[in-house]
């Protein structure tokens, strides 16, 4: 069974049909990329998968269990985490604290335990800080732990967001344009990090405009155009698909060169 299945997902915003009956599967252990022009409905699809919006129609299943209608925090508890296209960190918190929020699901201290700073809460807090720092190390930002998250560069903020998402220990990680705003070197590092994450057994679903990155690391590509799936398959196949080439006419050499 696929890890994630979307069946006939439809999303209307007033008269605008952002997604028009999209179905796909994400298999365990692979990196799947979603590409498509601006406004194709890629982010909307992510928002539906993680529960931020309820689709007009259609269902999404995780491990065969329907998750449409659940709240984002419930879906997160099932092992889905994400990053946001326009980086959504908690700017008034430190980098470490941001990642600690990612560890929230793995703690149990309640309001009263926290206020009284009970021994169990202290132990848990200590362990959480250790774990969160490991995730920061993984993305190479350990030395920024005590910096304010709002003051980092865009590339660094994307990495903190990645560490925060990894902190939830997801089985499925959704990345919305993780490379946008990154320079070439940062993008190369990102590719390495993402492969390493996949090799650890985390399934990745990624929206990305950087074609060379997509062609480089994706095992499977899904192409959306105006809310409709127009192609799906391994990079080599998608690259030579005439419908995809037609959509990317202006960026043809981009697709071909990847």
């Amino acid at each position: 069974m696929a890890l994630l299945e979307a069946e006939n997902v439809r999303q209307c915003f007033g008269g605008l049909v952002a997604l028009n009956g999209v179905s796909f599967e994400v298999r365990r252990g692979q990196i799947m990329a979603i590409i498509g022009p601006n406004g194709a409905g890629k982010t909307t699809l992510f928002n539906i998968v993680c529960g931020l919006i309820n689709p007009t129609d259609g269902v999404v299943r995780m491990d065969g269990k329907v998750i449409t209608g659940l709240k984002p925090f419930q879906i997160a508890a099932l092992g889905v985490s994400r990053t946001f296209q326009n980086v959504s960190l908690f700017p008034h918190m430190t980098v470490l604290e941001n990642v600690l929020v990612g560890r929230h699901l793995h703690g149990r201290a309640g309001l009263i335990g926290c206020a009284l700073r009970l021994p169990t809460q202290r132990r848990e807090e200590k362990a959480m800080v250790e774990q969160a720092s490991r995730f920061l190390e993984e993305v190479g930002l350990a030395e920024k732990a005590q910096h304010s998250a709002g003051g980092l560069s865009l590339g660094q903020r994307r990495l903190v967001e990645l560490a925060r998402a990894l902190g939830t220990e997801p089985r499925l990680l959704l990345l919305d344009e993780p490379a946008s705003g990154l320079n070439t070197k940062e993008t190369d590092n990102l590719a390495k990090t993402l492969r390493r994450i996949r090799d650890r057994g985390i399934t990745l679903l990624m929206v990305e405009h950087d074609m060379s990155l997509v062609m480089d690391i994706a095992d499977e590509i899904l192409v959306l155009d105006f809310g409709v799936k127009i192609a799906e398959g391994p990079p080599a196949q998608v690259r030579s698909d005439p419908k995809v080439i037609a959509v990317y006419l202006g960026e043809k050499e981009n697709v071909a060169s990847g």
Partner: peptide
């Protein structure tokens, strides 16, 4: 004690971005 704890971070996270807090597993309501 509260604001510097797991729960305190969660509620400061709600302040900064409720959507992100919820997506990270915080039962915001």
């Amino acid at each position: 004690n509260l604001v510097e704890s797991r729960m305190g971070r969660a509620l400061r996270a709600i302040h900064d971005s409720e959507a992100a807090a919820s997506a990270m597993g915080v039962n915001t309501p």
